[in-house]
């Protein structure tokens, strides 16, 4: 994976496979602490301890289309390569939460990438899922909640091309404006 936004897309697809109805993504950048963190939680089917232990193993997958499962190991390795940490917890029937932390200034810390394209891909492919994205940057905050957007749309599908386009602009503007503020 080239950047963190692609990891987010990949992990969110796991949540969807686990039949999640709600996915919460929290991305935080803290310059003072030299830390970037990513937390993704869902209310999907969750995993028992035995399965949870196995997901960090690249040779484990629940799929029958291929024999390796790389999504979670790749993110975990990306965190460790950037002097960070990775943790995952899960409860069957309740959902899964994972957290990856990175040292922002580390040379091996992957760039953030195109968050807007990632979120739009998730919404477009799975409009029924409620997606909440929070991006914090040194105390400033941008939030996107698809439930809130849907309530403003008066029945127009959230995955209409026109709607996706303005959501994408909104995300890019929202994140940009945090970066520009001093």
């Amino acid at each position: 994976m080239e950047d963190l936004s692609l990891h987010i897309l990949d992990i969110a697809e796991n949540s969807i496979k686990a039949k999640a109805k709600n996915i919460e993504i929290m991305f935080e950048e803290n310059t003072e602490k030299d830390m970037t963190s990513l937390e993704i939680s869902d209310d999907g089917m969750g995993m028992d301890n035995k399965t949870l232990y196995k997901v960090l193993n690249p040779f484990f997958t629940t799929k029958n289309t291929r024999k390796v499962g790389l999504g979670i190991p790749l993110l975990s390795e990306a965190a460790k390569a950037a002097d960070g940490k990775f943790s995952i917890e899960s409860q069957p029937g309740k959902g899964t939460r994972l957290k990856a932390m990175f040292k922002s200034s580390h040379i091996d810390k992957k760039p953030i990438g195109d968050i807007a394209s990632t979120l739009i891909s998730i919404i477009s492919g799975h409009p029924e899922v409620r997606l909440v994205y929070t991006h914090k940057l040194n105390g400033k905050k941008y939030e996107l909640d698809t439930k809130e957007i849907k309530s403003q749309l008066n029945g127009i599908p959230i995955h209409s091309p026109e709607v996706l386009k303005i959501i994408k602009i909104n995300i890019n503007k929202g994140i940009d404006s945090m970066r520009r503020q001093k």
Binding site: M1, L6, L9, D10, R66, G69, L70
Partner: peptide, 8 residues
């Protein structure tokens, strides 16, 4: 197709 492989 958006598996890990496709995304990468």
């Amino acid at each position: 197709h958006m598996g890990t492989c496709g995304i990468a």
